[in-house]
Design a binder for these strands. Structure first.
Length: 593
RNA sequence: GUACUUGUAGCUCAAUCGGAUAGAGCAUCAGUUUGCGGAACUGAAGGUUCCCGGUUCGAUUCCGGGCAAGUACGCCA
């Protein structure tokens, strides 16, 4: 009995990724092997997790609590055995058992530096793959009659970031989207462009192509609502399109092309190439009939009294059955999506299909996934609806319902750029336009990606002011840390050679910094496994914050030469981690700001 | 009505997916500055994690039941 629950659950744990942690994995393995041998019991468990507080050591284990009860081993005895094994490890300098039976270990300075070097090397492999080795991401599938607004942007940025994060772990990713190029709204736009332009053309309007389309969509929609004659005319366009009337097809194609071209421009300005594969509803809306009829004899589809064909899987899957073919043989949304899924699999042969579509369509996807499973096309658990919550306007209402009055993605970028430019002028800095754009994108992307996408958020000017204020938890703060690190290395360029020959003990702040740095593989793996870019955002902020503390605490110009070299190497490694992390969020770093 | 999602500091949000004393930012208050870039740093104050049960060494997290908010519910896409 398949469960309806979980198809769109937030926490996804079936990618089976396992982070590769240099040295830490090694300590885990050797300790576990010795422990099992000592007790001659292969069921014993041992794992290390990073401590959140230096007081509790660098890493800790709950092995005492987990094993003693489960395997009837005396806790004190296990404690002394485990402590002995850990103490003999070359990378560990201190082992202590807390009153609550956590065992805390402290790593040697050497081990910390080695870990940083492994993570920083070109060969750093982030994770071992599980059974999901390839994923197709469908996004953003914006309707072609509208310019992208600040709500669509969430989709674009999250999908872009997920794509990068998944790739970083070694998963093969593919991108695609479906363009709904049919339907009444499209025909309303065609009608408006035919009748309301007063001679205005794309060229003479000076608008981006998608904005041009969007403008006439709104005009067409209003006319459609108010005037029955217009409604008639729009219906006629639908009929003409269906019957492949030459002029109508030409107008339609030109409108769709304008729209896509404009959307791609927007993707480009946000640093996404937008070259992913596009499926068109008009290519597939007649298909899928045979798939449905084929299922009739398998019992997963039934015919009702009107002659319509419905899915018949309610009992097994607990989802409401859907109409798949009208009595006249025409298809519906579901039917097209079934066909599309089949096409996708034929083209990309991926282990998992992900749909980045807002939460309004949860029911649709639960139903679709169940049907695909029942039809033997793709198993449950290998399809995922990333059901992000809608972005709300400043008044707390859905943006979707208020056509034409909202900030478009293009306007938003310009607005942020203006603010960045103004504030850098205020500080008497002279920054080139390319950097202004990068800083603006940093602020914006961090704002969008640092939060949980499953919780609705209100988009209003308050958020904007915060994003560009450069204070506190922001992308610009992280970027600033990076440029600080870079300028530090540039200042001491003669002393910096990437070595760690110094033998004096690391400072506490250096240990903290290296420990945070050491979490990189784990954080990226977890972000991929649970589809949460915000984990990267939190991580890079914490790392940046530690770096700024380091920067304030240590006067580099007063350090001994050997110590300076090591410290600069640490700075360099940390700055590279900041850079890599920001890139996973789709942020390109600047060297100066 | 049914299903899904959400509920944590005054506000906006975290919490490595069962771990130690629930953390940040904003706002508030108090400090650091002759500097390697102050777009920085340090500190104070702020909590019955919506409520009630259960599971267990241990629950913001998992399970059950309430309460509140948002969203979706067959021939539209």
């Amino acid at each position: 009995m398949a469960s309806k629950k979980g198809i769109t659950k937030r926490r996804w744990d079936t990618l089976g990724l396992k982070a590769i942690r240099p040295i830490i994995d090694n300590i885990e393995e050797t300790t576990l092997a010795r422990l099992r041998r000592h007790y001659d019991n292969d069921e014993l468990d041992f794992s290390l997790q990073a401590s959140h507080n230096l007081e509790f050591g660098d890493y800790s284990t709950t092995a005492l609590l987990k094993n003693s009860k489960r395997h009837q081993i005396d806790m004190d005895e296990l404690d002394s055995v485990l402590t002995e094994i850990l103490k003999e490890n070359e990378h560990i300098t201190e082992v202590s058992t807390a009153p609550n039976k956590f065992i805390n270990i402290r790593l040697s300075d050497q081990a910390l530096l080695q870990i940083a070097q492994s993570l920083n090397s070109q060969e750093n492999q982030i994770a071992q793959l599980g059974h999901i080795k390839s994923i197709l991401i469908e996004s953003p599938s914006v309707n072609p009659n509208k310019a992208l607004h600040v709500g669509h942007l969430l989709n674009v940025l999250v999908a872009g970031s997920l794509n990068r994060i998944l790739r970083a772990t070694g998963i093969r990713t593919e991108r695609d989207e479906i363009i709904n190029d049919l339907g009444v709204p499209v025909c309303m736009t065609i009608w408006a462009i035919r009748n309301l332009t007063n001679g205005e053309t794309l060229e003479s309007s000076g608008l981006k192509p998608d904005q041009f389309v969007g403008k006439y969509y709104v005009l067409g929609k209003n006319a459609f609502k108010e005037d029955q004659e217009v409604e008639k005319a729009v219906r006629q366009i639908m009929v003409d399109l269906e019957s492949c009337d030459e002029q109508t097809v030409k107008d339609w194609k030109s409108m769709i092309e304008m729209s896509i071209a404009g959307q791609i421009q927007t993707y480009n300005s946000y640093g996404e190439d937008g070259t992913w594969h596009r499926w068109y509803e008009s290519d597939i809306y007649k298909d899928g009939k045979d798939i449905v009829i084929e299922q009739l004899e398998k019992g997963t589809v039934r015919k009702d009294e009107t002659g319509a064909l419905l899915s018949d899987i309610n009992e097994e899957y607990g989802v409401r059955d859907a109409v798949l073919l009208r009595p006249d043989g025409t298809t519906l949304y579901h039917t097209q999506d079934i066909k599309l899924a089949k096409n996708k699999l034929e083209k990309y042969n991926v282990d998992m299909m992900m749909y980045v579509v807002d939460e309004e369509q949860i029911d649709h996807f639960q139903s679709l996934f169940s049907i695909l499973d029942a039809f033997g096309i793709k198993e449950l658990g290998t399809m995922y609806h990333f059901a992000y919550a809608k972005v709300l306007g400043g008044d707390g209402k859905s943006i979707k319902s208020r056509d034409g009055v909202d900030l478009t993605a293009d306007q938003l970028l310009v607005e942020i750029q203006d603010r960045i430019r103004a504030s850098s002028k205020e500080k008497g800095q002279d920054i080139d336009e390319a950097s202004i754009t990068k800083i603006a994108l940093t602020a914006l992307k961090y704002l969008y990606l640092s939060r949980d996408p499953f919780k609705a958020f209100r988009f209003d000017t308050l958020d904007l002011d915060e994003a560009v204020s450069f204070k506190g938890k922001s992308g610009t703060y992280c970027l600033y840390s990076y440029t600080r690190a870079k300028s530090l290395i540039a200042k001491f360029t003669e002393e910096f050679d990437g070595s760690i020959s110094d033998s004096s003990a690391l400072l506490d702040i250096e240990r903290l910094l290296l420990l945070q740095n050491a979490k990189y593989n784990e954080v990226v793996t977890n972000a991929a496994d649970t589809f949460t870019p915000s984990e990267i955002a939190s991580y890079v902020y914490d790392l940046s914050k530690l770096f700024n503390r380091y920067y304030e605490e240590v006067k580099f110009s007063e350090l001994e030469k050997a110590k300076l070299k090591t410290s600069l190497t640490i700075v360099s490694m940390v700055s590279e981690t900041i850079k890599k992390s920001l890139e996973l969020l789709g942020v390109e770093v600047v060297e100066r700001m």
